[in-house]
Structure formats: C-alpha cells, structure tokens
Nucleic acid binder design. Sequence first.
DNA 1: GCGATCAGCT
DNA 2: CACAGCTGATCGC
Length: 426
Amino acid sequence: MEKGMISVDKWSEESQVYFLTHLHSDHTKGLSSKWSKGPLLCSSITAKLFPTKFPDFDLSFLQVLDIGSSYSLSLVSPTTGLEISFQVTTIDADHCPGAVMYLFRGEFGCILYTGDFRWEATSEKALLGKSMLIKALGGDKIDFLYLDNTYCNPSYSFPPREVTARQVVNIIASHPQHDVIIAINTLGKEDLLIHISRALSIKIWVWPERLQTMHLLGFHDIFTTKTSLTRVRAVPFYSFSINTLEELNTMRPTIGIMPSGLPWLVRPVDERDYSLGLSLPIFQHTTKCQETEESSSLRKFHQYIYTVPYSDHSCFDEIKEFIKLVCPLSIKGIVSSSSCSIDPLYYLSHLCGPNQVIEQTTKKFRTRKVDESLEEKHVKVVKSIAVEFKKEKNMNVGCLSVRRSRVSVLRRFRRGAKIVERSGVD
DNA sequence: GCGATCAGCT
DNA sequence: CACAGCTGATCGC
C-alpha cells in the first residue's frame, strides 16, 4: 500500500483512516484528546473504554468495528486520485479487553496486523479467533504479516493462562493468613482476577479508576475498592516492588504475585537470581511443563514475591503455530526489544518456504506501523459502522464523568492508596 | 499554566 | 531483559 492511506497504532503521519488495536499506552503514543486527523476505527470494547484514557476526545471520530465482521472501505490514492476499495476484518487478539488484529485485503494483497496477541491452542477465545481468521482468509495466504514478536525467541515458553491461574489460586490458598497483592496494569489480566475470585469466593480490591474500568467491562460484583472486604488486592505494577512488600510485611504478613511472561524468558547463566541478591535456587521453567500446577512454577522471586508465567502475549511456540497457520510471504516485527534485537524472526524463517522475506527489526521503534496503501481522499466507511458507532458513543457518554483535574487528583489518590494498603491491613 | 517529550524506575 | 505505565523534569507556547 502506498503512504497516506492507512495507519495502524500509529498517529503521527497523515492517513485517511486510522486503526487502533487496543488501548495499551505503547499503542496509543501520539494519540491525544485533541485528535482531529481523521476517523479512528476500533473494537466496541476499546471504544467504550476510550474516554477513560482520553477524556476530552471528540467521539465523533470513533467508529466501531464488530469483532469477526468484515467491512468494505474506499479510500482515494494520493498519487493517482483513483478510488481504492479494500476489506478489513477484525479478529479477536485475546490480549486484553478490546484487543483485535486487523486483516486487510485489497488489490495490494493480504496484510495482517496482529497488534499484541495471545494464541493459546486451549482457550475458547483463541479457537474462536482462529476460526475467524481462517474464514476471513478464505484459503489465501498472507502477503505481509505485522507480528507481535514480543516473545519471539525459543527461550520464551510458558503454559496457557488457565494453568497459571490455577497456580495463582494455589499460592493464595496456601497462604490463608496472608494478604495478597497482585500486580496488574490499567487494562488486562481481568480473567485471572475473576478466576481467583470465583475459585476462592473472594472479592478483589482494585483502585478506583480500575473499578470504573471493571464496571465498563461489565464486571459488577467481583471487584471492590473497600479494603476491609478482602485480603486480595490488585495494584498497579508501578506501585509493586520489593520495598512495597517489605513495608507491607511490617504491618501484616503479605505476599506479592507478579503475573508476567517476562521473567520466564531467562535461561539463567548460573545459579544466582537476577540482581535481587536472592539465594533461592532458580527454577528453570520448561514449557512442556507438565509438571503439575502445584509443584511446578512456584518460583519465588523474593522472600515475599512469587512470579508466575501469566502472559497476554504469545509464547514462542504459539507464535510458531500462528505463522504456520497464516503462511506469510513476509514478516515484520512490531515490537522492538533489545533481547531480541538481533532478529527474532530469524527463528521462524523456515516456516513458510524459500521465498519468504523477513524484515529485520530495527532498534528503537515502539510504534507499529502500516502506513502503506494505495490511494486517498476522504474515507467512506460503510454506513452500518457509523450507525453502530453512534450506539457506542451514547453509552460512553452515559458512563463517564472524567474531569480535567483528574491527573493531579489521581496522583494524590495513588499516594493515598498506598497508605490505605498499608493501614488497611489491621 | 498546560501540553508534549523524555529520563528514570519499576 | 522489560510485558506496561507512572512520576517528575524540562521545554516551548
């Protein structure tokens, strides 16, 4: 595709239409409430959550695409002035609420932009995503794949999230007298928290903004902001640290659980844990980790901290399966990372035949882009999208009341929140 | 004073 | 390392 047509998760360049895969910050960098460049297309859940992140955003720019549906769009070539039609299909990415992949099909060929995604063979959602993708492809191969290569290295290997969720429940259940804090971000890991809540019949504390997000997502009974109602609290990653845990433990016995795919990448070079000065034996995680849930990855990172391999990105084997399925002619990673900077896709070049082109990932690109395409002018998005969009827009307006002073209030609150955590334990 | 950007730190 | 993302400093308007 030529430039000036489409952008995905990239907001700096001029395009006729912009696609957003999900609301994590590294995909919205450059977006702001003052947006006026053009229509922004996303899933309905992303649209619903949008105002929490961009309070003053002009919602008339948002257009909702149903997951699993295909839409026809026409743009105009910047160079020829000719109208160019193409199809876009939205596929569940199973990464965080609202996260989608976009499949574009037109005279430019077949382009798949995964955004961040998890490809678990065992999850119902992934199976659904798989069937959506197969159906949308209709037997065709992908010409160009923009791939979430976060863990695109054979050393990254972890079990399905369902397995890890049971491990987490076991950890909590085996510390009946402890408070528990779990590190999460502003979006994602909801399924883990819900699993814990159901398995242990316990509510989960979250900070007020997160509760609002939970309510927007339709979870009304599981989460609370009252510390007195539960011993399990989900806190932002940035307020989760060894220091926090040590301070908490001066008040009350508390363990921390850090769900992440990251620490599992490491093939420890020696017996020492990272830079934490720990003396615990390192647990070498092996994916085929059929070792049972209890015994296996109870890996202590620190006296009070358990890290568990709960990842919203695909592990290496899942990426491999994904690539085998879509057989791309060429691939480009959308995530830069120094641990993979050599060329993570090197590991996958054998999967789709000799003609495959693997683009080298370059160092510091956090943006994921697809600003290519063929033509330009105004965008004619299908009518039904606009109609659907209006519905969502009304819902949003009804649910939110975000103010300007939000940031400072929030910051102060969060400082307060930590104190609450500490004093709320008695 | 505000927004955008960046360094620093989990 | 860094999944994501807050905090605080600085700069330009």
